[in-house]
Design a protein around this nucleic acid. Structure first.
Lengths: 204, 204
DNA sequence: CCAGCGTTCATATCTTCGTATGAGCGGCGC
DNA sequence: GCGCCGCTCATACGAAGATATGAACGCTGG
């Protein structure tokens, strides 16, 4: 059974927000209502897959600007945009910014559900990929500076002897750092380490 | 100096097509005109970075359907959509399908140029990435079946001895295949071979 | 039929890797 | 100051890898 998903609804129209909330509840999704972009930013982001439903017309800044701002903050939550008075350039801008969908009001409930479902699925995959990456980064963080250098050169295909030359070390020392890097990264083979370095962009 | 880029224009309105063609020529891009989707498909695709400008309303099939069809044929050429009578769902569909932009007529010339420039840049990068991949696949195609098996297991991190066990071979034979694979693939280190295997999805 | 290729294996040699054991040095914090 | 940690290096041994030489078998295509 998949983890419970949360739908964040940012809309200044409370009655529409409630309608959406009840729609999402009816299919087993947990809705959260926010009256403004700021209210969403102030709230804690739960550690669960989710999706953001955003009205383009918001008090303060536009939903499109808000969308761009989220990306700047590193919030990768998928966004579904909706609007009552939209035009094509607006929708294109939203989609270019990575929105899952752009729904003109009035929309069919099923379209909204489809969009949110797609967004949640996208978030699930992003979170899974991110999770693996973060675990890698945590392990990489435990490496000493020397160990990182050695790891970078070794995964670039250099021999211990060559690494020793480039770093002005003895080959023995390189072996020690290499072994430590393998152990700390949890790599059971050089191939593993190479793939980890690839995912971490080490050496780039 | 970057390679000359080609703009493919598919539009049944010849006068508009000509206007676009002259616009693109004015900025040093080579335009090619097609009166229908079929005419484009029948033509030879030049080996140069390019971009496809497509009217959504076409005789026969719609520009959106054509766009989907191109993807099926494995034609990754970036698409810029334009239309005289479009709506938001249409633009969203086009953008979801990966269009670079969706321009309602009348559009500013600069917007079209920006879109096409973006498309060409995207194509340049795609072609560069694809080129590297194809070169890899060509080399991989020269490997004998055994060499591929050995390469898969070796890049999975197994020792020669383990590979020999799994394939019921002697360790010496494994070494020979391994060496042949390295030579044929042009890998100068195991790390190289691992990255190649990764790019080729070998072992997946 | 035979040349070529892929596959298999042995022997031999050299290099490289992995790791353990032991040890010295410098910085940082309690 | 003393312990911890990172960094350094040496010696030593066994495992693993790379390569060359030589050789055998079967299949396929000219």
């Amino acid at each position: 059974m998949p983890e419970a998903a949360i739908v964040h609804i940012v809309d200044d129209d409370a009655s529409l927000g409630e309608a959406l909330a009840s729609l999402f509840r009816s299919v087993g999704l947990e809705p959260r209502l926010y009256g403004s972009a700021q209210a969403f930013l102030d709230a804690e982001l739960p550690d669960a897959p989710g999706c953001l439903v955003l009205d383009v017309r918001l008090p303060g800044l536009s939903g499109l600007d808000f969308q761009a701002q989220l990306a700047q903050f590193g919030i990768g939550l998928p966004v579904v945009l909706m609007t009552g008075h939209g035009d094509i350039p607006m929708s294109v801008r939203g989609m270019k910014a990575g929105a899952v969908d752009f729904l003109p009001k009035p929309f069919r409930e099923q379209d909204m559900l489809d969009a949110v479902t797609t967004g949640i699925e996208r978030d699930r995959q992003r979170r899974a990929a991110d999770g693996g990456r973060r675990a890698l980064e945590e392990r990489f963080a435990t490496l000493s500076p020397r160990e990182r250098q050695v790891m970078a050169l070794v995964t670039a295909g250099k021999l211990n002897k060559q690494v020793a030359g480039e770093l002005s070390l003895s080959e023995i020392t390189v072996k020690i750092h290499r072994g430590a890097a393998m152990r700390k990264m949890g790599a059971r083979s050089l191939a593993d380490l190479v793939r980890m370095a690839e995912a971490l962009h080490v050496g780039a």
